[in-house]
Design a protein around this nucleic acid. Structure first.
Lengths: 227, 227
DNA sequence: GCAAATATAATAGTATTACTATCAATTAGA
DNA sequence: TCTAATTGATAGTAATACTATTATATTTGC
């Protein structure tokens, strides 16, 4: 993926920002250090004032880029899902067999993010942690319907649709492709959180990626695909 | 269940409150109206001041019962899972076949909550909505480890363990019983949220309980149980 | 190279949030 | 009825979540 770094840019729906954070140095700092601070403090304790101090700028300047911290989190989440979709795309391109495409897509979407591709302003490992811990707060809130109309969840939905299509290619009569995929995507992140904080809710196996193993198996059994 | 209403009380771990809200009228109001207000405003916009005004009391009085709104939400969530576990218990008692016990437990944990048993101070339908939308915020936060030590998640974990035991009865070598159950429990609630707000992430089928159907099937296929 | 446009910093200010503290009034229990 | 516990009333603080204004840089277009 290295050779694509400089040429590919992830485009984010402008509704989520007031001023494009990729259009300036300060904007880039807001993304990068915003990511760091949200990871450190947790979303609830994170404020634009703290971020501004941290990057030696001012609160007012940060507000010029994002209406509020909710939208900054939405931006980061949208970026993450675009990046994930791009990974899926790269890994399934030119592969004819839909079962293998599904398997590879599942792997992309459930495996741990360890290496830091530093694809752009954002540190993918930290962003992954944020997505695990904070991203559901973007939709689990009263503004979900208007945010949805603004397109905040478009990328996520299109990612789910993309995998659902592979499933339908394998089993055209399967009734619940979207449910299955969103269950797996959300579940994988929850299980990683559980294994760090509430291990009795999961099954941790040292030296094995239990999460990927479990969800891959689950999907294959649900669709009746032999291993 | 009616005849048990007056005799059975759900006991909540005292670490979550400063003063037992079931020990006074005001406490009961805090639970009941807190539930209503959180449902109306969403957890982020909900404040103790608004609650106090709503029940014609004062902020300071509310703070006498709960350290903060996070703990009130934790209380309500704990109550919900105790209630759910009790439902599971009632529905699986005296049934020998573990497959049927599993099926009944799954049904309890995935089906829609429509009828309002008014089991106590809390309106179960509203509480169910709150659990769907807000409850993951109790653990998706920086205090999760100390909250866990205080026992905030004990009931939830014991519920998961209970069902995991049924699974192990059916398939003693199954590697991921906790993962499977927590995936189903969390997933069922997410899917209900999706079908209300982000329907492209799920598969809504009118007149059918797709959620229960899907997760029951998923579990049975994962465990290789014939329908 | 200069004017115009744009971006940022500095400062100030407001309403609300998330509490804590104190004390008086009321109620309940023994 | 006396005492203790509960609640209400009031006050106060630091932080949050913004908005507005103005001055100062910096970039860009010509």
């Amino acid at each position: 993926m290295q050779d694509l770094q400089s040429n590919i840019a992830i485009k984010i729906n402008p509704n989520v920002y007031k001023k494009d954070p990729l259009s300036s140095d300060l904007g880039a700092k807001i993304l990068r250090q915003g990511c760091n601070l949200i990871d450190d403090l947790g979303f609830e304790k994170f404020t634009f004032k703290k971020l501004a101090n941290h990057i030696e700028s001012t609160e007012a300047s940060v507000y010029r880029y994002f209406e509020n911290k909710h939208n900054l989190l939405a931006y980061l989440t949208m970026w993450y899902w675009s990046w994930a979709e791009y990974k899926v795309l790269l890994n399934t391109l030119n592969i004819d067999c839909p079962k293998i495409r599904l398997q590879r897509a599942m792997k992309c979407l459930t495996e741990e993010v360890i290496e830091d591709a530093e694809f752009s302003q954002v540190n993918e490992v930290k962003l992954n942690q944020i997505v695990i811990r904070e991203s559901s707060k973007v939709y689990l809130c009263k503004t979900v319907d208007s945010d949805n109309e603004s397109g905040f969840f478009h990328v996520y939905k299109s990612l789910v649709q993309r995998i659902a299509n592979i499933i339908l290619e394998i089993r055209p009569t399967f009734k619940y492709p979207h449910m299955l995929i969103s269950t797996v995507i959300e579940g994988a992140r929850h299980q990683r959180f559980f294994s760090d904080h509430l291990p009795r809710l999961t099954d941790v196996i040292v030296g094995e990626d239990a999460v990927t193993d479990f969800y891959l198996q689950l999907v294959q059994r649900e669709l009746g695909i032999e291993d």
